[in-house]
Design a protein around this nucleic acid. Sequence first.
RNA 1: GCGCCCUUAGCUCAGUGGAUAGAGCGUCCGGCUACGAACCGGGAGGUCGCAGGUUCGAAUCCUGCAGGGCGCACCA
Length: 571
Amino acid sequence: MFAVQHLIETLVHDALEASVASGELALAELPEVTVERPRDVTHGDWATNVAMRAAKPAGMPPRAVAEVIAARMSGHADIASVEIAGPGFINIRLSDAALQRVVREARAQGTSFGSSKLGAGRTVQVEFVSANPVGPMHVGHGRWAALGDSLARILAHAGYSVEREFYVNDQGVQMDVFAESVAARYLELAGREVTFPEEGYRGAYITDIAREIMAEEGERWADTSAEEREAYFKEKAYAQVLAHLKHVLSGMGVEFDVWFSERTLHAPGDDGGPSAIERAIARLREAGYIYEHEGATWFRSTDFGDDKDRVLLKADGSYTYFAADVAYHWNKLEERGFDVVIDIWGADHHGYVKRMEAAVAALGHPGKLKLIIGQLVNLFRNGEVVRMSKRTGEMVTFEDLLDEVGPDAARYFFLRRSTDQALDFDIALAKEQSSDNPVYYVQYAHARICSILRKAADAPEAEDVSALAAALVPADADLSLLTTEAELGLFRKLAEFSEVVEAAAEQYTPHKLTRYAEELAASFHQFYTVCRVVNPDAPALTVARLAVVDASRIALESVLGLLGVHAPQRM
RNA sequence: GCGCCCUUAGCUCAGUGGAUAGAGCGUCCGGCUACGAACCGGGAGGUCGCAGGUUCGAAUCCUGCAGGGCGCACCA
């Protein structure tokens, strides 16, 4: 995919360079060339402020600089006009030929439309959700699931080699409490006197798990030692919860490549040698960032801007959660060698950002860890806050939400807001099948297109509209017949796709794609309202319009695919 | 007390240092004898939280203040 933005940047840059070479502009160094989309369409497709940036060093008025550069840009086949405007903007308008090429490319490339080589094959790991396997996921996890998965899809589309990973905290205090909780419920079911653990998990699912064990194995665990019982229940219950997490995530179309067990970080190495945690600490020690104090082993994270140093090995001989996390990131960056590692965390964990970045820097990989901090989700129903209590375990879970609104609406709503904005999720609105609900607006455009293609092919029952389009419209259809504002507007919107994907990939902002999806759908609906597509009296025009319709179908399917939302052919 | 995020139209939110700050919903007025009206067109609606600063230019960058959210463990 040729991204128009890069073409324009190159053209401006070359014109600038040539102007300096010829002596028309006296510049010691070239200013950075940036092009942007003007807000106002009358200002053309692209604009650059480079003349204003170069004016002072060149000792010329901005508009005079712009004149020099603009004179060297006109004449290119992809450019219809170059104009100087305002204080010194250079406004560039694409030629119809350039726009028509985008339509042909979309049809030729199919699902790879909008892809780019931005990532150049670099490897990226996206770790997200990583919910503790001791209970159901809350709706926040749903947001991270949608975000991480969509980001992974976008990065892959932008040319990165992507892996999705779920870090399983299958060791530690929470697992112990979890096992004790299940054991206590089990004993209750067996009719024994038992005091429920003070900090135990009180959700009804704990009892469900206990009941299941009871059904399978009877009361044989009621009279064993607590250690034996809890050790067994821990594995049993944890396996069940993990399977449940996978099931729920899968229900929203989120599949992980790797489920990484925290236990492997504590376990001895493959050769029976030191564990990953021990190796990581040794590495930090070599680098001089470790010291002992009051019986504990500390990491001097303050060397990297953290507020205070952090304990890795506690005085009681056990490792902190952070120690495992250090080892985990050492594993990601050093042992598995990812070029970029992305962690998606909830805002409630932002306090760990500095120490994690410090650890990664101390391990010799500064800057490779990208931490995305997502703000939390507030649930509403018809404008009323849905209250939840963690203490009693009463809550609307991610699974409940998914069951109620469905995967498409859930994902779309999770992705529609920028990550650093708290999300108000209104369950009633997400369920509503009306124009209030943007996911239907976009899907409707796609279904409408499919209907047109079926109509054009006179095949109302056809399932494969892609084949219909291929048969109806040759690759070299004469697109120069399409000259109305609505048609050209749609061309322009299609031409934006690639650059939106790149921006979303570079800035980790899937919400840009929901916005683009709505804009693309709007451009299509406008086109549809004004331009009759299937017209027996004008076969050439019909074919040309069907080409744009098909390109729009491909783009909508592609953008919805990046969001993980289904593109229905009928609805 | 310290740190991070947020504050833009009645509501929910976009907005890469640029030109007259946008979208959806809501509201008002219009548009189906042709391909899907779950659609389209138009109007009204803004001290971009407040105050300074940086510069050719600030919703955007810096500082301070106010309001809201989330964190500040040898917990995970």
